[in-house]
Write a protein that binds this DNA or RNA. Structure first.
Lengths: 247, 247
DNA sequence: CGTCACCTTGATAGTTCTCAAGGGTCGTGG
DNA sequence: CCACGACCCTTGAGAACTATCAAGGTGACG
């Protein structure tokens, strides 16, 4: 579903009072408002960006969680990353080249639409927002680095534990999680697609983590009773620096 | 080795006449020149950025090839990506947080130094360069995506073939390669560190590719007699869009 | 000549994949 | 109300892939 004809004000934006995100002053909010073009509402499974297609729009996640993935000819797919509220979706769309990945909603989600062609002019007029875009891009890059380390250096159990920790911490930063628990339904098949494991082996490794009381990953939620312990297990400390900027 | 006291002019910059890179007009060159702070020269094995340290500088590769890698406490390392002439090194340094990776030269290399603290002001004054930075960041991101696909979905032989193709194509874009051959020494250990394979298995898989005449990877050079064939084998088409921008 | 850094080979063990089958839940239509 | 399909999780068993350990081999270089 899509809104756009009538301008949607940013006043009630859910991101405005999320403690994990940077505070935004009146002036900035207004500036973004003029740039905003509408909203999209998705249900679980809905797509925003399609691999191979060009996009004229860039989005900011207002609520919900989405995944970014890449398909191969033979049907295999690799999930690249998760997207949380405040994240910029489709930076690639700025290049005016076919998207190399698709984006799909994992939970019901709401996105804010920005027009591609005015983006350049927009950041030109607001250098500090240009800086924020770069900030987000750099962070995204470092998340991908972490995923690469997981795929390259860890075994199945560790990968799953790593991913759970990553998601929970990232969700905590946007008020989607508390006390090591996120209510989000991630399929074992999706985990397998992200971590480069077979579905069967993913299942068995998850059971092993569950038996050890380290990670409880069901279709309803991910739960990590003792994040410290998991952090030690996988040699990964999800450093949450200051609040994230967003547009 | 480091230059800086005397301003190094951009006039003789080797990037200026690399066909794979975007043409640069006089005005832009001058603008960048005022921003440039000096140069660094590295030999094979030399480091520019150290993981865990903050950096006050951002670099552009003028010549040579470098790698960006991440270390774990136990000594394992994951190579994240290769850097070629024109690439921006240390975008992360803009965040004023400890670097999450190190950067090391694979061949003798020369880098151009930009001061971090003036960067924001610089892109504010030159919006189109801000756009180019975003362009580079988006491209980097899509390279990491590709590496993730390789690690997640391909077996050892395919990963190696993929990496060879990636490097050769990327090198062709910067005049370092011609006719499917790059003169660059990448150790089998480095390949293993990038692809998440053991050294022994990397060795055997490389031999298999060599026997099949697909990839000839020695300590002196990488050679791909028939890029098309390799491209089909790994389901990877390294699309080289237009010339890359650089600073 | 010895050391160092790299490549190579063989044998064995461990991890992960694939194939095959069964079970649970939920919504839909007969 | 029940049968059915869709989607997800679970288990077992054998095959394939990859890691590890151990040992040799080469060439460069002081």
């Amino acid at each position: 579903m899509r809104t756009g004809e009538t301008m949607t004000p940013c006043t009630g934006c859910p991101l405005l009072d999320c403690p994990g995100l940077k505070q935004m002053d009146e002036e900035r909010r207004r500036e973004i408002e003029t740039f905003k073009q509408g909203e999209i509402v998705l249900e679980r499974g809905g797509q925003v960006l399609t691999q191979g297609a060009r996009s004229n729009e860039i989005y900011t996640v207002l609520s919900g969680v989405l995944i970014r993935f890449r398909l191969m000819e033979d049907g295999r797919r690799q999930i690249i990353n998760f997207l949380f509220p405040g994240d910029l979706v489709g930076l690639q769309a700025m290049l005016d080249e076919p998207m190399t990945h698709g984006v799909e909603a994992l939970t019901p989600a709401r996105l804010c639409i920005f027009p591609r062609d005015r983006f350049i002019e927009f950041v030109g007029r607001n250098p500090d927002m240009g800086y924020d875009v770069i900030w987000l891009a750099a962070k995204e890059e470092s998340a991908l680095e972490e995923h690469l380390v997981a795929l390259g250096q860890r075994n199945a159990r560790e990968r799953i534990a790593y991913l759970a920790l990553f998601i929970v911490k990232r969700a905590e930063g946007t008020c989607l999680a508390s006390e090591g628990r996120v209510e989000i339904s991630v399929t074992q098949g999706q985990v397998a697609d992200m971590l480069g494991l077979s579905l069967v082996h993913t299942n068995r490794s998850m059971q092993s983590l569950r038996r050890d009381g380290l990670v409880r990953w069901s279709l309803n939620a991910i739960e990590i009773p003792d994040p410290e312990a998991v952090s030690r297990l996988v040699h990964y400390d999800p450093a949450l620096f200051g609040p994230r900027p967003y547009l």
